[in-house]
Design a protein around this nucleic acid. Structure first.
Length: 307
DNA sequence: CCGAGGACGCTCCGAATATC
DNA sequence: GATATTCGGAGCGTCCTCGG
């Protein structure tokens, strides 16, 4: 198998960005005919016309539209690889990173993360944003540097992801709650009054689905948009909150937490970022720091009272 | 083993032609 | 008229062969 001419990537990027053979030629300091020939080679290599005539202008094919962004990122990465290495000077690094995190992440991992940043790079600031939806637009546009969350089928395919830790649901009630004494059973759990956490306002969730095969239903008294609200409400009432274990570890202090008496699927919380940042040394440093912090918290045996 | 020289392929260019 | 495409020729690098 012959290696494709990688110089064609530069040509492809120029042609797709300009949408014109003449302008792409100008950009790369070639003659229009040379660019036309290069486009012909690209067409042969990709097996797609890439740009087709529409009146006087050329318009991109669906394949060309699909490639446009990918090629741009590939080139910027390749250029970063070929650039002379510039050591990352953390002492002098002055930069604000914007992180869009899942609920409870800041409360759980923020203190350790900020402490490490303070030690290593005092000029770095973090800006944590709420995550009202799963839309990847902010990452794509560069408004957000990093995101944490569960990777789903709807997650934008161009994003890079790395698993941070596994999490699962636990139940939590106030200290001295009747459920805090005795053995927890599915029937006792289902018999209580519950807080449902739903970002979208849905009236049932995975726990209701898990109770169904046991012939049980639970009474949902109220639904709230966030885990911290649910825990806060459970702290001052007789309501039961069912929340992710890792994300609410700090929030549940002084309360009674228990393993759910019904099997519910665990989930993996991942780090997500856009390819544009893949080769950025400062961004890479922050990604490593986040991974370290999450790994450390995961291996802290004193931190998990629920088994 | 090494250098010279020819064959070949690739890419470039300018000019001519096609298309809208 | 503006732009894209095709054509023929030129320059350059690589590969192969051959002689020293």
């Amino acid at each position: 198998m012959t290696t494709p001419d990688l110089n064609l990537l530069v040509t492809l990027d120029a042609v797709l960005a300009e949408g014109s053979v003449a302008r792409a030629a100008k950009r790369l300091h070639l003659s229009p005919s040379a660019m036309s020939r290069a486009l012909a080679r690209l067409r042969e290599t990709t097996g797609d016309p890439l740009l087709v005539r529409a009146g006087r202008a050329l318009v991109p094919t669906p394949r060309a539209i699909e490639l446009r962004e990918r090629v741009g990122h590939l080139l910027s990465e390749a250029q970063a690889v070929l650039r002379p290495a510039q050591g990352l000077d953390l002492q002098r690094l002055a930069r604000t990173f914007t992180l869009r995190t899942s609920e409870g992440f800041v409360e759980c991992f923020g203190p350790a993360l900020l402490a490490r940043i303070g030690e290593q790079a005092a000029g770095v600031r973090l800006c944590f944003l709420q995550k009202p939806d799963k839309d990847s637009k902010a990452l794509r546009e560069g408004a957000v540097d990093l995101e944490t969350g569960v990777v789903e089928a709807s997650t934008a395919p161009e994003l890079y992801t790395q698993a941070l830790f596994r999490d699962h649901y636990v139940g939590v009630v106030r200290a001295g709650h009747p459920l805090a004494k005795g053995r927890m059973t599915a029937a006792r759990y289902a018999g209580g009054r519950h807080i449902l956490v739903s970002r979208t306002g849905e009236q049932r969730g995975t726990i209701d689905d898990a109770l169904l095969p046991l012939g049980l239903t639970r009474e949902v008294v109220t639904s709230v948009a966030g885990f911290s609200t649910a825990v806060g409400l459970a702290r001052v009432s007789d309501l039961i909150a069912s929340v992710p274990e890792r994300h609410t570890r700090n929030l549940r202090q002084g309360m009674h937490s228990f393993a759910l008496p019904v099997p519910t699927p665990g989930f993996t919380v991942s780090l997500l970022w856009h390819p544009r940042f893949a080769a950025d040394p400062a961004h890479r440093w922050l990604r490593n720091l986040l991974r370290e912090v999450c790994a450390d918290e995961a291996t802290d045996p004193a931190a998990d009272p629920v088994r």
